[in-house]
Design a protein around this nucleic acid. Structure first.
Lengths: 333, 333
DNA sequence: GTGAAAGCGCTAACAT
DNA sequence: ATGTTAGCGCTTTCAC
């Protein structure tokens, strides 16, 4: 049985307006009537119809988040951060697994965004700046993680990739490594991560007066990790350390190295980027630059809620999060 | 600018009823008018207001799913399976991270379920049978994973835990291991997994005529994995193989063993249960019993959608999924 | 094949 | 302090 506000009103002997009042406790209601209404609500087990409420108020308590891959714990942790924060504010979260496909993301935006959701969070989206601006213009607040959109007046959060890479390489240098290679993996043209991390790598070497050898910068989009790694180790002067643009690359290197009988960190040191959960369990455990995923999710959601509250009239700044070097054993330090 | 069906009607020179007709293409509309309306919709960039639609039709196109921990890739993969399937049917998914806490789950049920969602999926819920039955009675379809609720007429999906454990232990036995221990980890009183896996372990040993030694069945709720493992290895007759009730336990054993200088699989073989993503990256890679997470998510969602379509008039059966032994290196076979 | 009109359940003026 | 009422945008009879 589904009761409406009308049923409650009749049974409590008041008008529906009064019921609505106690439900939303905005206007004041006589304590006596309030109690009466409350008891009837309890008795009938009445629950508000949120579609009706949403229609009337023209806003819902649902937000959306698009991630490239939910099953990846990196994104799972971000989602968790978003969801937990959303719950604090009685907001619900619709998740969208973009699968890294632009078309799928666009579908979500079309189907979901114009729907009754209050706002949306984009995690490492494939959408172009233009598309994002268009969405933003369509009215509802959006938050981005992974791209600085301050120039477009869209609030965003980024991790200081350059600094993270710099720290990683510096750590290697300070422990005596002199021939440090960089594996970049596949490119994501719309995302600045790779480039920034490469910049950090370069900056560190430069600062130390080390030569930046082109043959030490490896890993195009089409090559497998094992080819890249093998190639690197077969160089006349193989590197004594490798910095990978992201952990999955490092994981691949770890595996290949093991198969080839190359010892890590004894033969080559290895450092990754992201700090996936797996990193603590590999052998050796992987030294890496941590992106604080849960916190990132939290912050994205907080920013969105803030924008929601402020009715979108907020200066849209980019928040940059400092990365943290997690030293484990793969760097041999 | 937000246009309504009314705007479209006016601009197209038809009634709102007609617009609704072409929108839902149920009743037939003259091809000419349909085209006209369609073009106006396109031109105005009209999108339906889903709150209104939901209110009117008294049903939404969103479903909910409760999992213990989104950030865990095991659940992440299930969520992904649910989400992907839902999208095929133009359904959206609200995720709820229960954090393993009963109270939080209950909150979701209260806050979410009675709301405008069409149905709900419970993944390894902490809710009691009674609570589940009550929810089911309240009208909307629910699906369970991890507990057989057929007796209560609630459709559910389970993995054949006993058979999985049996397979794992049998594999160990067939490769010559004779002293096989079982680590059960913390108990989840409402979930039958642990018990079933223990049963499988027992059944296998029994079938082989091996003695079931109480001291080989280890791991209460309060002990850390390292204590349990150490204790096991200090037994007058330490086991030559360990079967863990779930992968995280095995991961812990792996770590402890490494710290203690115990070689796996040379000193003790190790087998887990679940097949977390991490398992392929550990060293040695972990032999384990796979629960097909993505498929589980898919099936849960499919079952829910089916129930939705059939208006809940379906015999509620339990579907049991056969587990699969994934042989890697930790068992030394 | 198309239009008019009656609500779905709720909130928010506006009355009283 | 409480009641009356007008919609929010849509689907769906029921006429024509």
């Amino acid at each position: 049985m589904k009761y409406t506000i009308r049923d409650v009103a009749k049974k409590a002997g008041v008008s529906i307006a009064t019921v609505s009042r106690v439900l939303n406790n905005k206007d004041r209601v006589k304590e006596e009537t309030r109690q009466k209404v409350l008891s009837v609500i309890e008795e009938l087990n009445y629950v508000t119809n949120f579609s009706a409420k949403a229609l009337r108020k023209n806003q819902t308590d649902v937000i959306g988040a698009i991630v490239p891959e939910i099953a990846n714990s990196f994104y799972g942790e971000i989602i968790q951060g978003i969801e937990n924060k959303a719950n604090e504010y009685d907001l619900r979260l619709i998740v969208c697994d973009g699968g890294g496909k632009l078309e799928k993301e666009l579908d979500f935006v079309r189907f979901l965004y114009d729907k009754s959701i209050s706002g949306m969070i984009f995690i490492l989206t494939s959408l172009s700046d233009d598309e994002l601006v268009k969405i933003k213009k369509s009215g509802k607040p959006i938050i981005l993680f992974g791209r600085n959109m301050q120039a477009y007046n869209i609030p965003s959060i980024t991790v200081d990739n350059k600094r993270g890479a710099y720290k990683a390489v510096m750590h290697l240098v300070s422990h005596g490594y002199k021939k440090i290679a960089y594996i970049s993996g596949d490119e994501a043209p719309h995302l600045p991560d790779r480039k920034e991390r490469l910049d950090g790598y370069r900056a560190a070497l430069q600062e130390c007066g080390y030569e930046i050898k082109p043959e030490y910068i490896a890993g195009g989009p089409t090559q497998t990790i094992s080819t890249v790694f093998t190639h690197l180790m077969e160089l006349p002067e193989p590197p004594d350390a490798i910095f990978c643009a992201y952990d999955e690359l490092a994981l691949g290197v770890l595996k290949t190295a093991q198969q080839m009988g190359v010892k890590i960190p004894d033969d080559v040191a290895l450092v990754g980027f992201d700090d996936l959960r797996i990193c603590q369990y590999t052998s050796p455990p992987l030294t890496t630059v941590k992106q604080p995923t849960y916190m990132i999710g939290n912050l994205c959601c907080e920013k969105l809620i803030y924008t929601l509250d402020q009715n979108n009239e907020v200066p849209s700044v980019n928040l940059v999060i400092p990365p943290q070097l997690i030293v484990r054993e793969s760097c041999g330090c």
